[in-house]
C-alpha cells in the first residue's frame, strides 16, 4: 500500500537497505576523504606544528610559496620528472602491450613478467635498484665496464639522479599501463584489421590507421592517470634518493612531506602546497579533457 510519499512499504524497506549497504562507504568517504580535504584547506590558512594551537595567518602560506626557492626548484623537478615519465610510461607500455597482444607460445609468461614489478613493494624495488646502480659495485656499471664504458654515478650525481629515478619509476609502473593497453587492443574488432589487410595496408599502416586511433580513449585515460601520478611521485624518491643529491630529485610531494613532518611541523605551509598541487592537477586534467575532443576517437 502506498504511503504519503508514494512509496510502498517494500520500496521503503529497499531504500533503507540501500542506505545501510552504502552507509559504511559513505561514512568512510566523509570521515577519511571529505573531512581531511576540508581540514587541510583550513589548515593551509594557519601556522600549525601539530603540537601548539593553530595560529591564523590568512593567505600567508600561499604567498610564501612564491618566495621559496626550494619550492620553485621542486616545481621544476616535478615538471622534469613528468616530462620524462609520462611519454616513457605510455610509449613503453604500448610497445609491451603490442608485443604480448597476440596469442603466441609463452605469451602469458611474458605478460606476467612485465606485470610483476607493479605488484612488487616499492621499497624492495628501490633498494634493489639502488644496488644495481651503485657506482662502484653495481651490476649496471660492472656490465658497462666490461664493454669499456665508465658508467656514471647514476644516483649520486646531480645530472644523472633524476633520469635514473625516471627509469626506475617507469620500470616499476609500466606493467600497469601495459595491461590497460592490452585490454584496449583486445577490444579492437578483428574485422577492421581484415578490411585494412584486404585494402593492402602494411603493418605500420594498420597500426597508424586502425590500432592507434581506436586506442586513443585508452591512451587518454592512461595519459590523465600518468599526469596525476607523476605529480604525486614520492615512494621511490624517498627510498632511492631522499630528494638528493643536492635536491636534484626533490619533487613537490617530497618537499611537502618534508615541510609537514621533518621541519618541525610546518603543517599549514605543507597544506597550502597540497592545495596548490591539487588545483594544478585539476587544471591539467580539465585541460586534457578539453584537448581530448581533438584527438580521442570513440567508435
Amino acid at each position: 500500500m502506498p504511503n504519503w510519499l508514494g512509496a510502498t512499504a517494500r520500496q521503503r524497506r529497499e531504500a533503507i537497505e540501500g542506505y545501510l549497504f552504502t552507509g559504511p562507504v559513505l561514512l568512510g568517504l566523509v570521515f577519511f576523504a571529505l573531512f581531511p580535504v576540508v581540514a587541510s584547506l583550513y589548515t593551509s590558512l594557519n601556522r600549525w606544528d601539530l603540537i601548539q594551537p593553530m595560529e591564523f595567518v590568512g593567505l600567508k602560506n600561499y604567498v610564501d610559496l612564491f618566495d621559496d626557492d626550494t619550492y620553485k626548484l621542486t616545481v621544476r623537478n616535478t615538471l622534469y620528472f613528468s616530462a620524462g615519465i609520462i611519454p616513457l610510461g605510455i610509449v613503453g607500455a604500448l610497445c609491451l602491450a603490442l608485443l604480448v597482444d597476440r596469442q603466441r607460445r609463452g605469451v602469458n609468461l611474458f605478460r606476467t613478467l612485465y606485470f610483476m614489478p607493479v605488484v612488487t613493494s616499492v621499497v624492495a624495488v628501490g633498494l634493489v635498484w639502488a644496488w644495481l646502480l651503485d657506482t662502484d659495485f653495481g651490476l649496471v656499471n660492472t656490465l658497462l665496464g666490461q664493454v669499456g664504458i665508465a658508467g656514471p654515478k647514476w644516483l649520486t650525481s646531480v645530472e644523472w639522479a633524476m633520469p635514473s629515478v625516471i627509469l626506475i619509476t617507469a620500470w616499476h609502473g609500466v606493467g600497469y599501463n601495459m595491461v590497460i593497453f592490452l585490454a584496449g587492443l583486445q577490444g579492437i574488432p578483428d574485422h577492421l584489421y581484415e578490411a585494412a589487410q584486404i585494402d593492402g595496408a602494411n603493418a605500420w599502416q594498420r597500426f597508424a590507421s586502425v590500432t592507434f586511433p581506436l586506442l586513443t580513449p585508452t591512451t587518454f585515460f592512461i595519459a590523465v592517470m600518468s599526469v596525476i601520478s607523476s605529480f604525486q611521485a614520492f615512494g621511490l624518491i624517498y627510498i632511492v634518493t631522499m630528494g638528493g643529491p643536492a635536491n636534484a630529485t626533490n619533487v613537490l610531494v617530497f618537499y611537502l612531506w618534508q615541510n609537514a613532518f621533518t621541519f618541525q611541523g610546518k603543517m599549514g605551509y605543507a597544506s597550502a602546497m597540497a592545495w596548490v598541487l591539487g588545483l594544478a592537477i585539476l587544471a591539467l586534467t580539465l585541460a586534457q579533457m578539453a584537448l581530448a575532443k581533438r584527438w580521442v576517437f570513440y567508435e
Binding site: D69, T70, T156, S157, V158, G244, P245, A246, N247, N250, Q258, T262, F263, Q264, K266
Partner: peptide, 22 residues
C-alpha cells in the same frame, strides 16, 4: 633553534654540491 631545520634544509644541499665537487 626553531629555524634550524629550515636553514639546514636550505644549506645542506649546497654542502652536498661541494662534496660532489660541483
Amino acid at each position: 633553534g626553531p629555524l634550524g631545520e629550515k636553514i639546514a634544509s636550505e644549506v645542506n644541499p649546497i654542502i652536498d654540491l661541494v662534496m660532489l665537487n660541483q
